[in-house]
């Protein structure tokens, strides 16, 4: 039995037809091999480029870097690699996936192989180019999905402000930061007045609309560096880093006035909404997050007791909340 094909021809056939880019350059950077994959993607035939200097044929290549890479293979007689993760591509090829979109140029993983000559030196460097676009697309999908999950895990689905978990975490880190650098830190706790009446009168959809509305107004009243979160049903907490009590009182009063002046429109009905707020400052003797929350809650309770739609500051220095009650009597 004799084989019609000889192994060398077969290997040549495979190297030229395989769905992998194969090119080789000699020590002077002259192109020696340019396979079908490269012809198809570059639009340059082997006839046109073999024998030419790599950087003459492809002046857009990152010359300084690539020369160093190839020189490294020649000097060290060792493999070298590039990954699309750090360097998206070597040759700017289109990836022929018009419908997957998002990625413009074919992502490439490259391997640089030293081709040893009879003299024991590297006579050529062979570069294989693998299309990694598919992997890259999956990676991108995965990253996008993880980013969405990460975002969702910290947000309250109804209002889009931080959820309780994120709020607790943020409060812990802000309290310890404030203590470490001896910086001011204030906390506002807010509760929607007579929320039960809204729910009773307009049903849960009406209640939800009111909660969303208040969350939006609160978010609009604070700085980017402040953290707004939904603490419970109709309760919100605002963390104000770098803000002493006086500043927090101004913010709380602004929120109070803003909510009182903007009724919610629900099914063509206007619902008047007010909120009660309690303010606590971390102060000189640093508190635990729980203590600070407790103090803001106490001040909030005082606002409720004193007629709602008002702001109360919990004095850090053993003053009774009553001393600092402010607010409108409207």
């Amino acid at each position: 039995m004799s084989s019609v094909l000889n192994a060398a021809d077969l290997l040549h056939f495979v190297a030229s037809r395989i769905e992998v880019g194969i090119l080789a350059v000699d020590r002077e950077m002259r192109i020696v091999v340019w396979n079908r994959f490269l012809e198809a993607h570059s639009g340059q035939s082997a006839k046109d480029v073999v024998g030419r200097l790599l950087f003459d044929a492809f002046p857009e290549l990152p010359r300084a870097w690539l020369e160093r890479k190839i020189k490294g293979v020649i000097v060290l007689k060792n493999f070298a690699f590039t990954s699309w993760r750090q360097r998206p591509y070597l040759f700017k090829f289109r990836h022929h996936r018009p419908i997957t979109g998002g990625i413009d140029v074919m992502r490439q993983d490259c391997t640089f192989l030293p081709v040893m000559g009879a003299d024991g030196e590297v006579s050529a460097v062979c570069i294989t180019i693998l299309d990694a676009t598919e992997t890259c697309l999956y990676q991108k999908k995965l990253e996008d999905a993880l980013a969405i999950i990460a975002e969702q895990s910290v947000r309250d689905p109804l209002t889009g402000v931080y959820n309780r978990r994120k709020l607790d975490e943020q409060l812990r880190s802000e309290v310890s930061r404030a203590a470490r650098y001896e910086r001011p830190l204030s906390l506002i706790m807010l509760d929607i007045d007579h929320f039960k009446r809204v729910n009773d009168g307009f049903g849960h959809p009406g209640g939800d609309e009111v909660i969303r509305h208040v969350a939006k107004l609160v978010s609009a009243c604070v700085r980017d560096s402040d953290a707004v979160g939904r603490y419970g049903g109709e309760e919100f907490v605002i963390i104000l880093p770098e803000v002493p009590a006086a500043g927090a009182l101004v913010v709380a009063e602004r929120i109070r006035a803003c909510v009182a002046a903007s009724p919610v429109i629900f099914k063509q009905t206007s619902i008047a909404v007010t909120v009660s707020l309690g303010v606590a400052e971390n102060g000189k003797s640093s508190r635990s997050p729980e203590t600070l929350l407790g103090e803001a809650d106490e001040a909030l309770y005082a606002s409720k007791e004193n007629g709602r739609n008002r702001v109360t500051l919990r004095q850090p220095a053993r003053q009774t909340p009553r001393d600092a009650t402010s607010g409108s009597e409207c």
């Binding site: 890479k69 490294g72 060290l76 060792n78 493999f79 070298a80 690699f81 590039t82 990954s83 993760r85 750090q86 360097r87």
Partner: peptide, 13 residues
């Protein structure tokens, strides 16, 4: 990316 690529290159070498 450059830092990662350098780490990879130096490690590979």
């Amino acid at each position: 990316a450059v830092k990662e690529e350098l780490l990879l290159d130096v490690s590979n070498i």
